[in-house]
Amino acid sequence: MTEEWLIYRGVGEPHDGIDALPDPPPWRDFDGGPVEDGPGAGGTPDGNVARRLGAHRQAAEMHRPEPEELEAINAALYLRRPLLVTGYPGTGKSTLAHAVAHELKLGRVLRWPVVSRTVLQEGLYRYDAIARLQDVQIAAGGAAASDTAPGIGKYIRLGPLGTALLPTERPRVLLIDELDKSDIDLPNDLLNVLEEGEFTLPELERVADSEPEVRVLTDDGTKVTVRDGRIRCRAFPFIILTSNGERDFPAALLRRCIQLKLAQPGEKRLATMVRAHLGEEAAQLGAELIREFLSRSQSELVAADQLLNAIYLTHYAAPPTREDLADLLIQRLDRPR
């Protein structure tokens, strides 16, 4: 594969390749502004790198993707489209977001975990109307109510998706994790936001005449200014949607995404995964356990994090306890209940 066009190369070492990303296609060009430059707007390192990618990642080159993975990731970067990543648990779907953010120096990964009760607004922002009402009532009891009543911005916090859509020069990385766990409506509710790259905050639109600029809290814990109750991106975020393949998504969502299906990791990838997190010695001592894990994965659903747990714990135990612990920790996930 010709690699000159690759922005994300899967080398694991941070670089400024994102600055070479060409302009977006006209239909994905966004003009939000003014540009936000606060902490977390792109360059702030992610404190979760060691936990997510491994403390020994430099020696292991764990996250060097296969050619088809590189192509899909870079297609999503070039086209400013979300990347829908499907695969069994433990195949490294969520890790891709952290690997891209680390290598391209795009700051902390914004993570939005999805459950059956998740609704779109939770990802965009939260407005604590009850707390505001209480504070207004308290302020109304004072002698100078108009001076002491707090502004509406104190009660609004942007969610991960809302923060990702702030106008920044470099894209943020957003992980929407396990979308297939969502209510049936959420994938459709996402369509307009993903297509338009913007959203409104009705609570701020209603006061825009008197308060055109409102300071609100972001998912990063920093303050930004929202103007006229609307947020529109400049650099469309790099969004990874993960799915364990437990349901089908509507065609309208699929056509807006670049799709990537991750296969179960092979022996080499499992060994480098162990090496990245636990070091060279653990990878050598766990070689037999890796082979046993691969054999079981042919007929059972097992996850790579179970293997990591087993190798870590059995490092401290002696036979036959070691084998018993491995059996305890690596249990099939598709066992009938």
Rank of each mutant, 00 (worst) to 15 (best):
E4N: 14
E13T: 05
P14V: 07
H15T: 00
G17S: 07
P26R: 07
D31H: 14
P39K: 13
A55E: 07
Y78P: 01
P82Q: 02
L84K: 06
V85M: 05
G92V: 00
G92D: 04
K93P: 04
S94D: 02
H98E: 08
L110V: 08
T118A: 07
V119W: 15
V119I: 13
L124G: 04
D128S: 11
I130K: 14
A131V: 01
L133Q: 15
D135T: 08
A139Q: 06
A145M: 09
P150Y: 12
L161M: 10
G162Q: 06
G162D: 07
L186V: 04
L190F: 04
L191N: 09
L194K: 08
G197F: 12
G197L: 00
P202S: 05
T222R: 12
T222F: 13
R227M: 04
D228L: 14
R234H: 12
L241N: 02
G245Q: 06
F249Q: 11
L254P: 01
Q259P: 04
Q264W: 12
K268G: 15
T272H: 10
L278G: 02
G279I: 00
E280Q: 13
I290W: 04
F293K: 07
E300D: 06
A304E: 14
L313Q: 11
A317T: 11
A318K: 12
I330K: 02
I330Y: 11
P336Y: 12
